[in-house]
Amino acid sequence: MNLNNPMAFSADELLNLAIMTKIPVVIVEGVDDVPVYERISGSSGIMCDIYASENLCRVREGCEGVIKNICDIRAISDDIVVENHIIGILDRDARFYRNEMPADPAIFTLNYYSIESHYVNECSIRYLVSQFTKATSRLVTNSLVKEIYDSIVTRLEFLHYVSLEALLNACDRDYKAAFGYSDTIKSIVGRGLVPALEEKRVELDEFANRLGLTKSMETLLKICKGKWIVEIFSDHLLELIKELPDHCAASKIPQCQSCATGNSESKKCMYKYTSFFSADILKMQSFTNTNVISLNYIKERLLILQKTAA
């Protein structure tokens, strides 16, 4: 162990610790991922230690850090089945489309681009509307949630070609891209780079066809950088939540009892947001929701890990 960094376990120390304590280890790409995965595992009663790759034996963040740590652990494991005690979780990023994902059973690849992508759905909308308004489950109906979701999905459509541009840039070194995954989505939009993609549609469509990528929300969650899509999703959800009191007063959505009785004071509408909030607050709050259906397969893998480590 590195005395200057007591968290920097060597590969053999980390494996031995997981075996002796019977508490499995999960290695994730970054520090920001740690609390998210701790909530996911904790909500299912799964006991495991979550470490950011940069805080372990290979002091390196991201997918490379996870892969290097798993490789080092595998190298000293002898006949020990590593994946019974330790797994590394990788984002489904450009590496996946370059066929560079390691064929190691101790590596678990997400279904979507990153963990943030798993919170762009109807489950999050229902959760966040209930969190930031006084609207009860009677008001936050399936039809209302779907209406909000469909509206947001329409506004996310521009990200399809934005994501294909970034993905092609990541897969083809000779491609002259306008931007890449390292850019922020606000920078891409702010520099007026999205309209210019219209001229590249044929080339980007051909690239998508080669990868078997159709234009759908499912595809978008796989190829759009998680930080991009959750940011735009939160921006639009903020706008739509703020519009709910006016829609309630006009009977465009299930009316709350205040508006139904003719009380025109919007501050008494049950859809009125209860406190100050922003798109960033919405985004961070969405990550506290452990009941998102899209997380179930991750919980199932962690449960298997806990059982094999016992």
Rank of each mutant, 00 (worst) to 15 (best):
L3G: 01
R173C: 11
G192Y: 00
E13D: 02
S264T: 15
V292D: 11
Q255Y: 09
G262Y: 13
V230S: 15
M270S: 13
M101Y: 13
H85T: 06
Y181I: 08
G212Y: 02
E239D: 13
F287P: 03
C71P: 00
T274H: 06
K225I: 00
P245L: 14
I27T: 03
M7W: 09
E198W: 01
R155N: 14
P254E: 01
K227A: 01
Y37T: 07
N16H: 07
L15P: 14
C256S: 05
Q131Y: 08
Q255H: 09
R173S: 15
N291C: 08
R92L: 04
A260P: 00
S117C: 09
P102M: 09
S187L: 04
Y161D: 06
S286E: 02
D72G: 09
T21A: 05
M20Q: 12
V140T: 13
D246Q: 10
V59N: 06
V26S: 12
E122M: 11
V230G: 02
N4C: 03
E100H: 09
M7R: 12
A170H: 02
E265Q: 10
I304N: 09
F233R: 10
L303S: 12
E203L: 15
C71I: 05
K252R: 14
G180Q: 05
A178Y: 10
E265C: 08
K200S: 14
K242T: 14
A52E: 05
L244R: 03
T274S: 07
E243I: 11
L295T: 01
L305G: 07
F207N: 07
S143K: 14
I40W: 09
V153G: 04
S117H: 06
R126E: 06
I281L: 13
A279T: 00
A18N: 02
R60M: 07
L282N: 04
V162L: 11
P254Q: 01
V162S: 11
C171E: 00
L56C: 08
F276T: 03
D183Y: 13
V36R: 09
R126M: 01
Q255V: 14
D172A: 12
T261E: 12
E165N: 05
C269I: 01
A249P: 09
K267I: 14
L211R: 04
E64A: 07
